[in-house]
Design a protein around this nucleic acid. Structure first.
Length: 402
DNA sequence: CCTCCACAGGAAGCGCAGGAGT
DNA sequence: ACTCCTGCGCTTCCTGTGGAGG
């Protein structure tokens, strides 16, 4: 048994857990030198008193887009050049033209009251602020606005158009946009005019490969964990897994974090391959249960019925297929129908039920096999892809709140 | 061999919501 | 503000299929 002193002094697994969090921004970002250089190149003109390029940054999740942009912005602020300003915002929070403008103004004019202004007042205010400049000589201000997850902005064409046009209306100073997105189809959704305006310069973030990921992990692990906690091969395994998952560094770090939490309970406090594997299972399940919670009600009821059958040992029709229990599609439907009625819902037709099943299989939540020999008639045999009690819990959490 | 079983999955159509057109 | 149209989720109806049973 460990002493309390031992536990409290952090003598265990983690030194600093936050290093593994997706929000953590490292001071040096590895393997993104070229991308960062391109961003800096686009931004650099403001240091000479002209407008920066409008940049568009594209790349999958966990490829370092956000960190790179924030780092460039931080570097720019470090230079402390007068009349050069920058702001970063996530468009999940600021998801309209109005909100974005409001945010920009409140960043630089904290005393300007936040509510009660029409859009045109905000526009004039921003225009004014850009033209004025801070020094006595009134050179105008140069602003860079970084819009992360720009694809979620509702009136995007309007926003881009406004922010681009402000450069025409302003006598001195400038405004440039850095747009960040991970949506592939984003380009097509854009009005051609805003597209050409926004895409003055494009930077694409390729997914990390396994070697790069293991480099990143080793680096973070060094400051996140106590010495000797993480196995070399565990890092390589996590990297290989994440490389298969679209080269997502965030996922790789999550694996490491979960593995660390798992091994806190272990006597030898070491992360080896088996902890990574277990962490992966946990992460997969988390994802699956997240999916369950977003499913339509009747698909959840269907899953629940299957889970009930899986727990009900006395249930008649089950087939043993190397230890796996499989259930007959028709009987699952009956169970589902009676459950629906019990809850006061009209069950979906059996035809549609089959359609639901196909979707659930596509999502990897159930597994289906055709009944081959040994079964009367032509049917499908079903089983849950995940642990029945956990599936039940996931469903109960979202809809069975009677 | 034929017939029946227990479904699979295509076709048609229905009611509704939301967007385009006027 | 209104109609019209389209897409979507769904039901109803129907034909197809592979093995079991007689």
């Amino acid at each position: 048994m460990p002493s309390f002193d031992e536990l409290l002094s952090g003598k265990g697994v983690f030194v600093d857990k936050s290093v593994l969090s997706p929000h953590y921004i490292p001071e040096t970002l590895h393997f993104r030198d070229e991308e960062i250089r391109k961003i800096m190149l686009g931004v650099a003109p403001v240091l000479q008193g002209t407008k920066a390029k409008n940049l568009f940054i594209y790349g999958g999740t966990g490829t370092g887009k956000t960190s790179s942009v924030r780092q460039v912005i931080a570097k720019l602020k470090e230079r402390g050049v007068a009349n050069v300003y920058s702001t970063y915002m996530n468009c999940r929070v600021y998801d309209s033209r109005y909100k974005v403008l409001q945010k920009i103004i409140s960043d630089f004019k904290p005393h300007f009251s936040k509510t009660g202004h029409s859009f045109s007042v905000l526009y004039e205010e921003l225009l004014d602020w850009l033209e004025q400049g801070s020094g006595e000589e009134k050179k105008g201000r140069h602003l860079i606005v970084a819009l992360d997850e720009i694809d979620v902005v509702k009136d995007l064409d309007n926003l881009v158009y406004t922010l681009v046009r402000i450069n025409d209306d302003v006598q001195r100073g400038s405004l440039a946009i850095i747009g960040v997105s991970n949506k592939v189809n984003f380009k097509q959704r854009l009005d051609p005019r805003s597209k050409s305006a926004l895409y003055e310069e494009e930077v694409v973030f390729q997914p990390y490969n396994a070697e790069q990921l293991s480099g990143i992990l080793r680096n973070r692990a060094a400051s996140a964990f106590e010495k000797g906690v993480v196995d070399e091969s565990a890092v390589n395994l996590a990297s290989a897994i994440a490389a298969g998952e679209n080269g997502d560094a965030r996922y790789a770090l999550l694996l490491l974090l979960r593995a660390g939490e798992l091994c806190e309970e272990l006597p030898d406090k070491k992360i080896s391959d088996s902890e990574i594997e277990r962490a992966r299972k946990l992460a997969d399940e988390d994802k699956a249960f997240e999916v369950i919670s977003t499913l339509p009600e009747h698909q959840q009821l269907l899953l629940y019925s299957l889970a009930c059958l899986a727990e009900d040992v006395s249930y008649r029709k089950l087939v043993e297929d190397n230890g796996e229990k499989l259930y007959f599609s028709g009987e699952v439907y009956e169970r589902y129908a009676s459950l629906s009625r019990k809850l006061g819902r009209d069950p979906r037709s059996s035809r549609w039920y089959r359609e639901y099943l196909n979707e659930l299989e596509l999502l990897g939540l159930v597994q289906m096999v055709g009944s081959g020999k040994g079964v009367r008639g032509h049917t499908t045999l079903l089983k849950l892809a995940y642990d029945a009690p956990r599936v039940k819990k996931a469903v109960e959490k979202t809809i069975m709140a009677e």
